[in-house]
């Protein structure tokens, strides 16, 4: 059972990571981020149950709250970018380099 949980979290996590690294649209990357966090939450909940540790559960709740805040900040930045009329796309973000 633990092996199953571990493999799902690792799989989910690296799917999210792949989304962030490979996709070009910013929104898709944002989703990838959320996917990674939720994968971690899944394994954390399971382990909390296994070790019957209430703190871990409290941690999961806080992590969800933080992930939400993170999403808010991400969205504001993407909306800002769109207001400037620029594509919400990685290729648009090329000015700063060297």
């Amino acid at each position: 059972m633990t092996a199953l949980i571990y493999s799902t979290t690792i799989l989910l996590f690296f799917l999210g990571l792949a989304a962030v690294v490979l996709r070009r649209q910013l929104l898709a990357m944002l989703l990838g981020l959320e996917l990674m966090v939720s994968a971690v939450n899944v394994s954390l909940v399971y382990l909390a149950g296994l070790f019957s540790d209430a703190q871990a559960l409290a941690a999961v709740l806080i992590i969800i709250a933080v992930a939400a805040a993170e999403a808010v900040v991400g969205l504001t930045l993407i909306i800002d970018l769109r207001e400037q009329g620029r594509e919400a796309d990685c290729s648009a973000l090329r000015e700063l380099k060297g």
Partner: peptide, 17 residues
């Protein structure tokens, strides 16, 4: 070294991975 820092977000994250 400068050529490496191409400016693309994906490249950055790729290097991170």
């Amino acid at each position: 070294g400068q050529e490496l820092a191409g400016g693309g977000l994906n490249d950055y994250l790729w290097w991170m991975a």
